[in-house]
Design a protein around this nucleic acid. Structure first.
Lengths: 151, 151
DNA sequence: ATTAAGCTGGACAAAGATGTCCGGTTGAGC
DNA sequence: GCTCAACCGGACATCTTTGTCCAGCTTAAT
């Protein structure tokens, strides 16, 4: 239901969120989140243009979140790379169907709206605070210890 | 959020639902739903293989719903052409993340599950029964009369 | 039997998403 | 001011989705 690019972008910001006041090189993020290095570079550029992350160029540079994790919603991230589009008007361009969607498109748009809201009100900060056996981007070691490596 | 193909499939079955006990030719459906004739042919074949519609071959043939509109859910149609995939396991393949999704993927899967349910419990019959100014596949004529032509 | 309507399915073209490659630019540290 | 790590961005390759074309098969009606 969500594009590959969205999945990548979310993994990347989740990785950045844990230590968001320092820049992280693309290569390091790619290793932690197990995705293609060069493709991630493109995704990060998109996130940067959208203002979700900030780029620090030059040696010891990298990307960092543009704001605190509590200020960034999952929707911000999703919309930066692959915007969720609501159904504003009748896709068939029918006369008289301005804001009045037919029952079919009304149901579709309702579902889209609910999805939008689910992500609008979830921040990166909340993901980090979640309690449970599995942490964001963190595999559980066979021994039971937690290593901060994956989503 | 939904593919073009899903939109087409839903339009097509909505068109069939209004007179579901007779076969309708692909060309007629394509005109009513304003989509490419030859592409619709492929979509109908997929719906047919999935058992959502039935094909009547030969002259005066066409497609008709395989069941009454009350028996067909929007999810049946969606899954026939572009199945909604839940997140069953950690996309990073991390050790220890069997059924335990990390907070990020848990939120994503929750959203997918809610979308699935929204469509699982909506039938084509309900769309037809909806009251409101705009009917499925029906443009409102400037004069105010209803013509059964579009979604 | 012949014809015409209409589905079937393969081949192919166009566009977008995904992924790779690489030379150029920036800026911290020496 | 030199060097090197790291971002920038264009070009290109590949795959999937979307869309088109067409010859062949099936069946109703005559």
């Amino acid at each position: 239901m969500f594009s590959n690019t969205v999945e990548y972008a979310l993994r990347a910001v989740a990785a950045l969120a844990e230590d968001w006041e320092r820049p992280h090189a693309v290569q390091k993020i790619a290793e932690r989140t197990k995705m293609p290095n060069d493709y991630l570079a493109k995704v990060m550029q998109a996130l940067c243009r959208a203002g979700v992350v900030r780029a620090i160029r030059g040696r010891h540079g990298g990307y960092q979140l543009a704001q605190a994790p509590e200020k960034l919603s999952l929707l911000d991230v999703i919309n930066a790379v692959d915007p969720i589009k609501r159904i504003e008007r009748c896709p068939l361009g029918l006369a008289g169907h301005g804001a009045n969607l037919c029952p079919l498109h009304r149901r579709l748009d309702d579902a889209i709206r609910e999805t939008e809201n689910a992500f609008r009100f979830t921040t990166l900060g909340e993901l980090l605070q979640s309690t449970g056996p599995v942490r964001p981007l963190c595999p559980i070691e066979p021994t039971g210890s937690l290593i901060n490596v994956a989503l």
